Computed example of a mutant assay.
Amino acid sequence: MTTTTIDPAEFRKVLGSYPTGVCVITALDEDRPAGMVVGSFTSVSLDPPLVGFFPDKRSTSWPLIEKAGHFCVNVMASDQGEVCRAVTAKGAEKFVGVEYTVSEHNLPIIADSIAAIECRLYSVTEAGDHWFVLGEILRMETVREDEPMLFHRGRYGSFAERM
């Protein structure tokens, strides 16, 4: 088997040309919210209903979410950049100013997100320097109809229809 060497900077540049949606994965760490911003969220299966995402193994938030055993995928709208900045903050600054409610599954649902998808942890598989996390959907809802936040070439933005 031959191993190909890929330059990390080139990897990020090339794959950064593919836009992704932006989600915030949340759970409760005892009574405090834990969360992380991801651009790797995807639907996986209808039967059973599964979704997935890929947290970095170096993440300090992922172990808290994993320990909770369930999580919520909050699909971000294009006007929620401040929410993403607050969730990516470190220490006591994390989640400052982020409005959320706690669902019947004891999960933080971020106010004004486009959609909320509540899941139980289904599996975690090693995938290089990341984990491949699958969640089985417990409940889902569209919260509002609006433009999604997108991540492209290192920047946040929104969708613009071209016809």
Rank of each mutant, 00 (worst) to 15 (best):
T2M: 12
T3D: 09
T4E: 13
T5N: 14
F11N: 12
R12Y: 15
V14K: 05
L15T: 15
Y18T: 14
C23S: 10
L28W: 02
L28M: 09
L28N: 03
E30M: 11
P33K: 04
M36P: 00
V38F: 00
F41H: 05
L46I: 07
P48Q: 05
P49K: 05
P49T: 04
L50G: 06
L50M: 07
K57H: 02
T60I: 10
S61W: 01
W62P: 01
L64Y: 02
A68C: 12
A68L: 07
H70M: 15
V73P: 09
A77S: 15
S78Q: 15
S78W: 14
V83Y: 03
T88Q: 05
G91C: 07
A92M: 08
E93I: 05
F95S: 10
V96K: 15
V96R: 13
G97E: 00
V98F: 04
Y100T: 03
T101C: 11
T101R: 14
S103Q: 06
S103I: 10
H105G: 05
I110T: 10
I114M: 15
A116T: 12
R120H: 03
T125S: 07
E126H: 03
E126F: 00
L134E: 15
E136V: 05
E136G: 01
E136K: 07
V143W: 09
G154Q: 02
G154V: 05
G154M: 02
A160D: 12
A160G: 14
A160W: 13
